[in-house]
Amino acid sequence: MARLRRFDRRAHRALAGIALLAVSAGVVTACSDEGSGHPAPSPSASASSARGAAEPELHMVENDGHRLAFHVTEGSGPTIVLDAGGGEDSSYWKDIAPQLHSDTGATVVTYDRAGLGRSEAVPGPWDVASAVSDLETGLRALGVTRDVILVSHSQAGEIATYFAGANPGLVAGSVLVDASLPPFYTDEETARVVAANQPAVDAAREDPSDPRNSQLISIAESYTAMHAAYHRASWPDTVPATVIVSEKTPFDGSPEDARRWRDAAAAFVRQGPDRTLVTARGSSHDVPEDRPALVIEEIEKMVRAEG
């Protein structure tokens, strides 16, 4: 069962732009944080920090007939919004969020996208426009109207791209953590992802009542058309962005696809001003888990720059 859960987690990320070519390498292992400005926290230090951290407050927000869970740790100055990748809920940030609040004093917001964590599911194909609307509605309900530092991992990069494009005055800066970015989605690469993931989708259809399977199916139904459109999307020039790309990428078992992923990140950075590329040395796609100190460092740099 443990092995199956690991497979399910990765399969759900696959249709966010991560082919199953990448998941055959085995269990992800943590890497050292050598070269980062922060030392990697020990388990005991993390636990101690978490015990002393302010507790987030749950806010349930309704949008278009479904309820969404937003978890808010109040602070001052900018608002750091953490958005997890495909198949992950707000708990993905459980170690990073308290540290950011402690270090910066900023308000920190995590949330569960529709169908994940404590948020209600939305039937039908996954729609990035609906996901953007959920985030917009949630932040508006929380009274967040300016100075957002948007931190997005993996699939959440797609939400971030459209959200920043629609709300350039709201987003002060963004940290895109091994994020799904428009240059990657050529017709050829999208077709490769779809073909590689078809077995996982077929397996998910055997138990559609499982929330993770349901989400995988909904993403698959809209994947090709959505990513053809996403390939043409652009990031607003007025919003600074730091792009953290993992060294191993989601395609650790496929050198060609890994190269394309890294090239897409570099191309995105070249396409506009105020964009910085950072490589997470030694990290798998799970940069927030493998290199948390690096992610924290880059977020705090953005907070200082835009604060």
Rank of each mutant, 00 (worst) to 15 (best):
D112G: 11
T79Q: 04
T224W: 03
A204F: 08
H227N: 14
E300Y: 00
S46M: 15
D290V: 00
V239A: 00
L139Y: 12
A53V: 13
A195M: 12
E57V: 14
R51C: 08
T137Y: 03
A156E: 09
R291G: 02
D112R: 05
S209N: 06
I80E: 07
P240D: 03
E206M: 13
D112H: 02
L139D: 06
A47W: 12
L142C: 04
E297M: 04
A50I: 13
S91E: 05
T79I: 10
D207Q: 08
D134P: 11
S130L: 05
H101W: 12
R259G: 10
D257S: 12
P123W: 05
A233I: 06
A225I: 11
E88W: 15
W126C: 04
A69Y: 00
T190D: 04
I18F: 06
V194F: 12
L68Q: 09
K94F: 12
V194L: 13
A265I: 07
R212N: 07
V201M: 15
V109H: 09
A280R: 00
A166E: 08
F70R: 01
S102Y: 08
T104Q: 01
M1G: 06
E298G: 01
L58N: 01
D207E: 06
A172E: 09
A22E: 04
I219E: 13
N197L: 15
D274Y: 07
R146M: 06
L150H: 15
P211D: 05
A50D: 10
R9N: 04
A233K: 14
A203R: 13
D178K: 12
Y162R: 11
L277C: 01
V175A: 07
A172C: 04
D83C: 07
S102F: 07
E62V: 10
A267D: 15
G85M: 03
A203D: 12
Y185F: 15
E256Y: 08
A30R: 12
S90R: 14
L4T: 09
W93K: 14
D207I: 02
P183D: 13
I96W: 06
T224L: 07
E297L: 01
G86V: 07
E74F: 04
L21S: 11
A2V: 09
L58F: 01
L139T: 14
S49H: 14
C31H: 05
I149N: 00
P98I: 14
D112M: 11
H153F: 00
A47G: 02
K94N: 13
A106Y: 05
P168K: 07
A2W: 10
T79V: 11
A129W: 02
R192A: 12
E306Q: 12
A164Y: 05
M226Y: 01
A166R: 13
A53E: 15
G75N: 01
M60Y: 05
N213F: 05
S283P: 02
T107L: 05
G117T: 02
S218C: 00
E206I: 09
P240E: 10
A264H: 10
H227K: 09
L20Y: 02
V177P: 10
D207S: 09
W126A: 05
L294V: 00
V171T: 07
L116M: 06
S44A: 13
H59F: 13
F163Q: 03
T161Q: 01
Y162A: 12
V72N: 04
L294W: 00
S91T: 10
A172F: 14
G124C: 04
